[in-house]
């Protein structure tokens, strides 16, 4: 199924409406159209990393600098970034607002995504990272804004899982 052009736009506008202009990301298929918009928007500063754990450090730097920041990654990237999440963000009380493409879940046709998808929610729970699923394009902007607000008040990582319903047409 193709990635949703409309919903990618809704998510991007939701990020901007939340007052966030600094974005770190590792590109992946579901995030492609979203990242294209971030790259083309002169008001948005997109930093692409080589591995997702780097983005945890960059987000911490942005937080220290007082710059609202959001992280975009795939759930497998989140799994690869866990030590940074735990031993930088959680250890020091640094908020992270993570938008995570939730691959390997209901309707997943690709075997290689399935293991990561199956464990994602349990890993988030084990790490005490509050999360919600984003399914409805009419609600996702509000969810982004609320996720960001909660990350800042709780000084904690917060995750919004972008589901197939939202990301594919």
């Amino acid at each position: 199924m193709p990635v949703s052009y409309e919903n990618s736009k809704v998510i991007f506008e939701g990020i901007k409406a939340a007052g966030i202009k600094s974005v770190s990301a590792l590109p992946e298929t579901w995030l492609g159209l979203l990242l294209q918009r971030a790259e083309d928007d002169p008001d948005v500063d997109l930093i692409q990393v080589a591995k997702e754990e780097e983005a945890i450090g960059i987000a911490a730097g942005a937080y220290f600098a007082g710059e609202p920041h959001i992280l975009l990654m795939q759930n497998h990237g989140f799994l690869a970034a866990i030590n940074g999440v735990v031993s930088l963000a959680q250890l020091y009380g640094i908020p992270l607002c993570m938008l995570i493409a939730f691959r390997g879940h209901w309707g997943e046709p690709y075997p290689w995504h399935t293991r990561g998808g199956i464990v994602t929610e349990e890993v988030l729970r084990a790490l005490s990272i509050p999360f919600e699923l984003a399914r409805d394009p009419d609600k996702v902007a509000q969810q982004i804004s609320e996720a960001y607000t909660f990350s800042q008040s709780s000084l904690s990582p917060v995750a919004l899982l972008l589901t197939r319903d939202l990301m594919e047409d």
């Binding site: 450090g57 911490a60 730097g61 942005a62 920041h69 031993s87 930088l88 250890l91």
Partner: peptide, 22 residues
């Protein structure tokens, strides 16, 4: 001064986040 007492490898990533936004 910020001392990154764990999360090995991320000091330069924090530096990039700081430098880019300041």
């Amino acid at each position: 001064f910020f001392y990154l007492q764990h999360a090995m490898g991320l000091a330069s990533s924090i530096g990039l986040g700081l430098a880019r936004h300041l």
